[in-house]
Amino acid sequence: MSHVVDLDMGRILIDLSDDVIQRLDNLKQLRNQPRAELLREAIEQYLDKQSSTVIREALGLWGNQEEDGLEYERKLREEW
């Protein structure tokens, strides 16, 4: 069930809307896991996604290009 049994943990108090709590309870029943485990999993996924977003953004303007950077450089040098 829990993957974090042997880890040191801190406690955080959060306020959630009634709707979110209900949805969390529905998922709790569906997956047969405690709320705390579901929240830990969700937070870990969120943080992983944020880390990968930072890495993608660090690529700068070239990150959205489909052309190979080395090939682009060769084309530019041919113009000289």
Score class of each variant (00 low, 15 high):
Gly69Leu: 11
Val4Glu: 06
Arg77Met: 07
Val5Ser: 05
Lys49Glu: 14
Gln65Gly: 00
Lys49His: 13
Lys28Phe: 03
Asp6Ile: 04
Arg74Cys: 03
Leu7Met: 09
Ile14Pro: 00
Glu78Asn: 09
Arg56Glu: 12
Ser52Tyr: 05
Arg40His: 00
Gln33Glu: 11
Gln50Leu: 06
His3Cys: 09
Ala36Gly: 11
Trp80Arg: 15
Leu39Asp: 00
Gly69Asp: 04
Trp80Met: 10
Arg40Ala: 07
Leu70Val: 06
Asn64Asp: 15
Ala42Asp: 02
Glu57Cys: 03
Leu76Met: 14
Gln65Ser: 14
Trp80Asn: 12
Leu16Ile: 15
Ile43Asp: 03
Asn64Tyr: 10
Arg77Val: 03
Ala36Glu: 12
Glu66Asp: 14
Ile55Thr: 14
Arg77Cys: 04
Gln29Trp: 01
Glu57Arg: 13
Ala42Gln: 01
Gln33Cys: 06
Lys49Tyr: 11
Asp25Tyr: 02
Ser17Lys: 00
Leu38Ile: 07
Thr53Leu: 07
Val4Gln: 06
Asp25Cys: 01
Ile55Lys: 05
Gln50Asn: 09
Gly10Ile: 14
Val5Ile: 14
His3Phe: 02
Leu39Thr: 06
Gln33Ser: 08
Glu71Asp: 14
Glu41Asn: 11
Glu71Gly: 04
Val20Asp: 10
Asp48Trp: 01
Gln22Thr: 06
Glu44Asn: 10
Leu61Pro: 09
Leu39Arg: 00
Glu41Lys: 02
Ile14Lys: 01
Glu57Gly: 07
Tyr46Ser: 07
Val54Ile: 14
Leu47Lys: 05
Leu61Ile: 10
Glu67His: 03
Asn26Cys: 06
Trp80Glu: 09
Thr53Met: 08
Arg56Asp: 10
Glu44Lys: 13
Ala42Arg: 02
Gln65Tyr: 10
Leu59Pro: 02
Pro34Ile: 05
Lys28Glu: 14
Ile14Cys: 04
Trp62Glu: 15
Leu47Glu: 08
Glu57Met: 12
Leu39Gln: 00
Ala58Cys: 05
Tyr46Asn: 08
Lys75Asn: 07
Ser17Tyr: 02
Glu66Ile: 11
His3Asp: 15
Asp6Val: 05
Gly63Lys: 08
Gln22His: 11
Tyr72His: 10
Arg11Met: 08
Asp8Leu: 07
Leu70Lys: 09
Met9Cys: 15
Gln65Pro: 01
Gln33Leu: 13
Arg31Cys: 04
Ile12Ser: 04
Asp15Tyr: 06
Leu16Tyr: 01
Leu30Arg: 13
Ala36Tyr: 03
Ser52Ala: 10
Ile43Ser: 11
Gln33Pro: 02
Glu67Pro: 02
Ala58Val: 13
Asn26Thr: 06
Glu66Thr: 14
Arg40Tyr: 02
Ile12Asp: 02
Gln33Phe: 03
Arg31Trp: 00
Glu37Asn: 07
Ser51Lys: 12
Glu41Thr: 07
Leu13His: 09
Asp48His: 06
Ala42His: 00
Ile21Trp: 03
Ala58Asn: 10
Asn32Thr: 12
Ile43Tyr: 01
Glu67Thr: 08
Gln45Arg: 15
Arg77Lys: 13
Lys49Leu: 13
